[in-house]
């Protein structure tokens, strides 16, 4: 498969999954969403009538006017149709993809906007900042550690690395997060327990404050993920180190170190990239919960709060954006496999 075809194929797959997720979301939450929107329209109409200049003879006339208005506006927004109506589903999927989700009932941005799009887009950069920084750090530590222990197969270092990886795999990351708060915030007073910065975003020291508050979640994310990366790297490297061409290089007199870091690591690159990428994409869900534990003002915390308040527009929007991020991660993983694999490039 050539590079272009592989790209095309992967992109197609990605969009297929994206639409599948969107349709599931809209089908599941559509009727609730409808109900909430109808309520919003009703409140709006009643507000207008109460503040407007229209005069009514009696309460019956007033009521019929309100009901008429509600029906009219519901029809315009397509609320009179069944929530599983195909044309409506497509309409809704498009509105989700453009983040046209209306207003949130419980949440606002730092600047007071209650538009769902504004709220979500305010949180996305903070999640990406935390998650990508942690991913890069875990990647670097994991690759070096994994390569190091692969060169010393069976040593004390190797064994403790495997044990560490097993432990970090079977412990819930959000539980580790709670322990970290107990140790570093409660007992040692090094970092704050709540990761939401105290100063306002317009403050000049806001960035520093943000970074200081990010430290504990960042350290926790790195701790829970680098062991797994190192384990994957070690696994593939050891397989490569047993191959004939490595033995041949060794007989040629190339140093062990050079073989390990340059020849073996390059050959193990593609499978490592795939496995690590998938593992990281899978850990993204855990990172969402981690945010809620640390009170880090990103999407995960918003998700957690929105579920608590049952704020459907926010939940739909967040599901969409997390799906996109998740799929992009997988996509990049797939592409990097194709790019790293010399056989594909040669074609």
């Amino acid at each position: 498969m050539g590079l272009g075809r592989a790209l095309l194929f992967r992109s197609f797959n990605m969009f297929l999954v994206l639409f599948a997720t969107l349709f599931i979301t809209v089908i599941l939450l559509g009727s609730t969403f409808d109900k909430l929107q109808k309520e919003a329209i009703r409140n709006q109409v009643i507000d207008e009538v109460n503040q407007g200049t229209l005069k009514f003879e009696n309460s019956g006339e007033r009521l019929s006017y309100i009901n008429n208005q509600i029906q009219l506006r519901s029809k315009i927004s397509g609320l009179d149709q069944d929530s599983l109506n195909p044309s409506k589903l497509i309409h809704r999927v498009i509105s989700v993809m453009t983040f046209d989700l209306g207003k949130s009932h419980f949440f606002t941005t730092d600047y007071g906007s209650s538009n769902v799009r504004d709220i979500i887009f305010e949180k996305v950069p903070k999640t990406l900042l935390l998650f990508t920084t942690a991913t890069i750090c875990a990647f670097v530590i994991g690759i070096f550690l994994g390569t190091y222990v692969a060169g010393k197969e069976g040593s004390w270092w190797d064994k403790s690395n495997s044990i560490f990886a097993i432990f970090s795999n079977s412990f819930p990351s959000w539980w580790i997060a709670m322990l970290m708060i107990i140790i570093f915030a409660f007992a040692l007073h090094i970092f704050p327990a709540r990761a939401t910065p105290l100063s306002s975003p317009s403050d000049p020291t806001y960035v520093l404050d943000l970074l200081y508050h990010m430290a504990l979640p960042l350290i926790t994310l790195i701790i829970v993920s680098f062991g797994g990366v190192a384990y994957i790297v070690r696994y593939f490297l050891i397989n490569i180190l047993n191959e004939d061409f490595i033995h041949a290089k060794r007989t040629m007199g190339i140093s062990r170190r050079k073989i390990l870091y340059s020849h073996a690591l390059r050959n193990a690159g593609p499978p490592i990239a795939t496995a690590v990428g998938l593992a990281l994409a899978a850990s993204f869900g855990g990172a969402i919960i981690l945010e809620a534990v640390f009170d880090w003002p990103g999407m995960g915390k918003l998700y957690y709060d929105a579920i608590g308040q049952f704020d459907v527009p926010i939940i739909i929007g967040l599901t969409f954006i997390t799906t996109v991020i998740f799929l992009v991660t997988i996509f990049i993983t797939d592409i990097s496999y194709t790019l790293l694999d010399p056989r594909v490039k040669g074609n």
């Binding site: 797959n13 999954v17 979301t25 599941l28 939450l29 869900g285 967040l318 799929l327």
Partner: peptide, 19 residues
């Protein structure tokens, strides 16, 4: 199988249990 693999588990689980 690939499509199921690529579904974001946690968000969908959240939606399912809410609904």
């Amino acid at each position: 199988n690939d499509i199921f693999y690529a579904l974001p588990t946690l968000p969908l689980l959240i939606l399912l249990s809410i609904t």
